[in-house]
Nucleic acid binder design. Structure first.
Lengths: 248, 248
DNA sequence: GCTAGTGCACTGGTCGGACCAGTAGGCTGC
DNA sequence: GCAGCCTACTGGTCCGACCAGTGCACTAGC
């Protein structure tokens, strides 16, 4: 006691140092998307490590979606613009390993998308309204099921953008694609798909009207209801009450 | 036209194949947390690749939080139980690279935590209520600021658990720690910290009462309000209206 | 008989060198 | 001036080697 306070040290491997430095350079903006990293052989000189170490570091950076490297590219690894790919990957893993149920995913979407609608009703611009209207029009014109789903997605995406919150936008996008990946084939095989599509269009028109009118709470309620109606059939009976808890 | 339909192929590197196989084994449950992977030298035989390739694959799996390896461990890499560490990492990167503002993060918390309160009011057990009460009691007994914050966190964590939605629980946890990481030093240096702590305790008691009474909408509203009061001072003026949009 | 201590076999981390297929840009020949 | 080839260099993969660290079996001492 009383002497200098030493902190526990943890062995930090060489490749981690490399990762940290490159990561810092990218996140701080010193390296911008589209710029190139030096070649692996240059990096091993700059960092004074072997090429194996450099490569392991690059693999980690690549797994995190920060850089991409192509064989033979004389310009070195490319710094990528941010994409939610890494977030998507880790959340997909989460869904499998933590055994997330479809109900939990849908409930999460109900929360996020309805909040997006609530905010969008406040913050939407005329441009957003026009985009939403156009998406609904394309839904109505869609001939095959895939196109319909694609336009459905683009409607929700406009709403999320109109919420003004990038995190909400990205998370709705990620969770939506996970949900769709889980049940897209069931949706495509649903009986009376025509009726479902008509009902979905009606729901979207109602949400759009509420957003246009600036009635956030109504838009949020309608969004939750629409999502419940759309997915409830695919959720286990025992979990449906938890979804309904968000409805009133 | 008319011939066999060929799909575009993309060069898939050897290490990716290794990653895929191990990942599949873990996510399918063939490998459970705590189990060990064969040693790198065994893996290079099983996969018929070099050790460099095996190691690059292991680095990726490690970056995704699926395995951990220690130097000298005779049992090989360990399969880890799921932790949100990878999610945390990618969301932190997102926050930096996509330049998420504090307001967006706080708004996200307002959405998620209030939804957790709403659901908790419905689904909480007596055990949850007891835990929440104990957390508030420990907040009141806390002497230093760090302990106070820690108990605050544990209160919110119980609520998130009581919501019954693991995804909500994990995401609140991840976003909360990012927010705290951004402004913990500012919070510690806040003027009249005592008053802030008293107010926070009062807020939590009110939320607890609403959850106990089963009044979800009230609990949700109180949660949003409490979070706004707690963080609004640190948010840029221009972004405060977006937070207030969630209050009424 | 049981425990404390020691050695060993093996691990992961790092290094260096090598070869290959692929790329882009400069060069050559037309 | 342009098409096509050449070359220097890239990333992907492999191999062999060395080191520090770990856990286990074995041993010496009680």
């Amino acid at each position: 006691m009383g002497g200098p306070r030493f902190e526990p040290v943890r062995a930090v491997h060489a490749y981690e140092r490399v990762v940290e430095q490159v990561e810092e350079a990218i996140e701080s903006g010193a390296l911008s998307p589209g710029e190139r990293l030096p070649s692996e052989r240059d990096l091993m000189v700059q960092f004074s490590v072997s090429r194996s170490t450099v490569r392991e570091a690059l693999r980690v950076l690549q797994a995190r979606g920060l850089v991409r490297s192509r064989p033979g590219d004389p310009h070195g690894a490319e710094v990528l613009p941010f994409t939610p790919a890494a977030l998507h990957k880790s959340m997909t893993t989460l869904a499998r390993v933590a055994e997330l149920s479809l109900a939990e995913l849908v409930q999460f979407r109900m929360v996020l998308d309805s909040s997006a609608s609530l905010l969008a009703a406040r913050l939407r611009t005329d441009g957003h309204l026009a985009e939403m209207g156009a998406a609904v029009a394309r839904m109505r014109a869609a001939t095959d099921h895939d196109a319909f789903v694609a336009e459905d997605v683009s409607f929700h995406d406009v709403v999320a953008r109109a919420s003004g919150n990038k995190l909400i936008q990205i998370c709705t996008d990620v969770v939506r694609s996970i949900v769709l990946g889980l049940i897209s084939e069931k949706l495509a095989a649903a009986p009376d798909r025509q009726a479902l599509m008509r009902q979905t269009i009606k729901h979207h028109e109602e949400v759009l009207a509420a957003v246009r009118a600036g009635d956030g709470p109504l838009a949020a309620r309608l969004t939750r209801k629409a999502m419940y109606d759309y997915y409830a059939d695919y959720v286990r009976d025992a979990e449906r009450p938890a979804l309904r808890a968000l409805l009133e």
